[in-house]
Design a protein around this nucleic acid. Structure first.
Lengths: 207, 207
DNA sequence: TCTCGTATTGCCCATGTGGCTAATAGTCAT
DNA sequence: ATGACTATTAGCCACATGGGCAATACGAGA
């Protein structure tokens, strides 16, 4: 028999971590070698344990899962990371895969699917739930917002007017307006209010 | 030794359910007698097993956890339900407690806290995480939106203008405007866009 | 009964919004 | 280096917005 796959769990939900650890450790093919609840502890435990695969939650306090993923891969490019998420927000998936995640699975997946995904990751493959793949395909047009537009969208959500945005960004109100117009076009919405809604739905805006 | 507390788990995340079941069953004081992944199966399993306590997730597909709670208590007023949530949205907590939940615990709680909460529920008490209690207190002014205002807010999020809202609700644009003004006042925001943001943050609006 | 909150309607007005069109400059990849 | 994209600025215009102020009607609860 092969040696078990060594796993690091990173999730801010203690109950979920305990549950996952329990489930995975009861399978001789796996061995949980560490549990982290935030970005720092994830990086620290990875460096110490060098696990074969990291299960990383997308939603985490302070530094979110995507950013944790980026920092982890910057230090350890060889890391195999399987993102585990309760949300199916398109932006999270896009960013996670672009940042170099080896896979993305939602928490609605059956235990057997999760186990299969871990194995694929460990063997060097890429895993994406079929449902998620469809959502990505629907979107993958030129509708990605530029960094500046994301910045503006984050001001709109706070109730800023175009003049407000202009003042805060040190640009003219014409430019602010141009950014807003670009956002409305790309998100395919009629006004700034619907843009904020779409922003939340797509994961561009965080709570 | 007492007979174990009989538990029903309701959560659409299979991994979380499996984990919880694993964890709780390993404690002789508890016994998981059923697992449900949506409203229907929760009601069915409750009727069949009559568990001592139900662990119910707030976020569920189609019919959400709060509505499931309402339907469950309508048929079985004696049910002891502990809401288990990954969100700390104020509205969810408010509605859950008002609907008659015996407790509300976030998934960031340690396993020991969860176990303590289950016991308190079983013994007839009420449990709310201290952090949540503070959030509720901050809010508990007259800032609850009326049903009509919730309706209007759900139109605003789609980019509706006041005339649009008026047409859809069969009222004049003056009335629509009055509703919007009331929403802005109650949510303490400057415009409809920020109102939508606050709506998402408070759990008044769902993805 | 009387009051409070909700839902409804109305008007005035300064300001903001979004569509349209158009131009310049920098960056980046082909 | 040529094109594509982004960021920037600009003006015009019909329409929507939100503040202020005021009134009526209805049901629930004290």
């Amino acid at each position: 028999m092969k040696t078990p796959v060594r796993l690091l769990l990173a999730d801010d939900h203690a109950v979920m971590r305990a549950g996952l650890a329990n489930m995975l450790n009861s399978n001789p093919a796996f061995r949980v070698v560490g549990e982290a609840d935030d970005c720092d502890s994830t990086l620290k435990l990875y460096a110490r344990e060098k696990p074969d695969v990291v299960l990383l939650d997308v939603v985490m306090p302070c530094v979110d899962g995507i950013e944790t993923l980026r920092r982890l891969l910057a230090r350890h490019p060889e890391a195999r990371v399987l993102m585990l998420s309760s949300s199916d927000a398109e932006e999270d998936i896009r960013q996670a895969l672009q940042a170099g995640a080896a896979g993305y699975v939602t928490k609605t997946a059956r235990p057997a699917e999760l186990i299969a995904a871990i194995n694929v990751c460990h063997e060097g493959g890429r895993v994406i739930s079929p449902i998620l793949e469809r959502k990505l395909a629907e979107q993958a047009d030129g509708s990605a917002l530029s960094p500046r537009e994301i910045e503006v969208l984050n001001l709109l959500r706070k109730g800023m007017t175009n003049p407000d945005v202009a003042r805060l960004l040190g640009i003219t109100r014409h430019t602010a307006k141009a950014h807003v117009a670009a956002i409305l076009l790309k998100l395919d919405v009629v006004d700034r209010t619907e843009a904020v809604t779409r922003g939340f739905e797509r994961g561009l805006l965080k709570m």
